[in-house]
Design a protein around this nucleic acid. Structure first.
Length: 270
DNA sequence: GATGTCCCATTGGAGCGCAA
DNA sequence: TTGCGCTCCAATGGGACATC
């Protein structure tokens, strides 16, 4: 049995990470006297081994292997064809077996492939006990989860960092919820073909002398009554036009959320 | 050189939308 | 209904830097 030299987790943990006490990294304390934060000179290292931050889950060899297949993953993701893993049609159906063939399950994620063929064979040795079989299942599932997350993140970070307008477009996205469909009676009330009729009734009933805060309520009452008296084909027309208008409003909201240009000339001018 | 602090890169997990 | 893909956020590890 090959021990996990790099101490990587071999069990998938679904529970939330235990809260950790504040560390130097999480607690911000005022800088000591001397150079301010802005005065500090950032020195970016070209040496990947000396790069700041978390070193990640994968060895350099594995990263290279995964990176090679990133364009294929991007093409698969762009196609929006969601296929189940195991269906034989998913990107993962070919990638994951290839990965496990290239990197033996007993080799810790952060360890490089050994050059010695004998060691390689030993690392790929199939489990002999139930215990080992369970361990292999966990290791394989763990690795596959990490691989899928890795690809998703690579794709996301590429999209956001390669598009210079991403931040600006994001800021311009609508903050509110999607527009709601107004009731048919409200649509009827504001419809060019019927609003005059409502106004006539409003005048005829002498509602204009009522307090202005009551006007909207009274107009709605009239519209409700008039709509009820309309023939079925008119009521159907109102319903379909209201649905159409709502669908258009939803489409515009979605486009704006995605940062797409509006098809509405007025909105474009703004 | 040792120590303390900052800050970057990466991660896991939750939650949501949507296609199958 | 299921589960994949995506997004967001807090946590983590560790190099860079300033100070003593």
């Amino acid at each position: 049995m090959v021990s996990n030299a790099s101490g990587q987790p071999t069990v998938l943990t679904k529970a939330a990470p235990a809260p950790t006490p504040p560390t130097a990294a999480t607690t911000r304390v005022a800088l000591p006297t001397g150079k301010s934060k802005a005065q500090r000179v950032k020195k970016s290292s070209n040496d990947p081994a000396k790069k700041r931050g978390n070193k990640g889950n994968f060895s350099a060899g594995r990263l290279a292997w995964l990176t090679e297949r990133l364009p294929a993953y991007n093409a698969y993701a762009d196609s929006k064809q969601k296929k189940k893993i195991g269906s034989g049609l998913s990107f993962w159906c070919s990638l994951l077996p290839d990965y496990h063939a290239a990197f033996p399950w007993r080799l810790p994620l952060k360890d490089e492939l050994p050059e010695d063929a004998e060691i390689l064979t030993a690392l790929a040795h199939e489990p002999e006990t139930d215990e080992e079989a369970a361990e292999k299942t966990q290791i394989v599932e763990n690795a596959e989860t990490k691989i899928m997350l890795w690809y998703g993140r690579q794709r996301q970070s590429n999209k956001t960092t390669k598009n210079p307008f991403f931040v600006t477009l994001k800021a311009l996205r609508p903050q509110g919820p999607a527009p709601k469909r107004i009731p048919d009676v409200q649509f009827y009330l504001s419809h060019n073909d019927f609003k005059e009729g409502v106004a006539r009734d409003f005048e005829a009933k002498g509602y204009a002398s009522q307090p202005s805060r009551e006007h909207l309520k009274l107009r709605c009452q009239i519209a409700k009554e008039l709509l009820r008296k309309e023939p079925q084909n008119v009521r159907d027309r109102i319903r379909s036009e209201a649905l159409e208008e709502h669908a258009e409003a939803l489409r515009l909201h979605k486009d704006a959320s995605l940062g797409l240009p509006s098809s509405n000339p007025t909105a474009q001018a703004e």
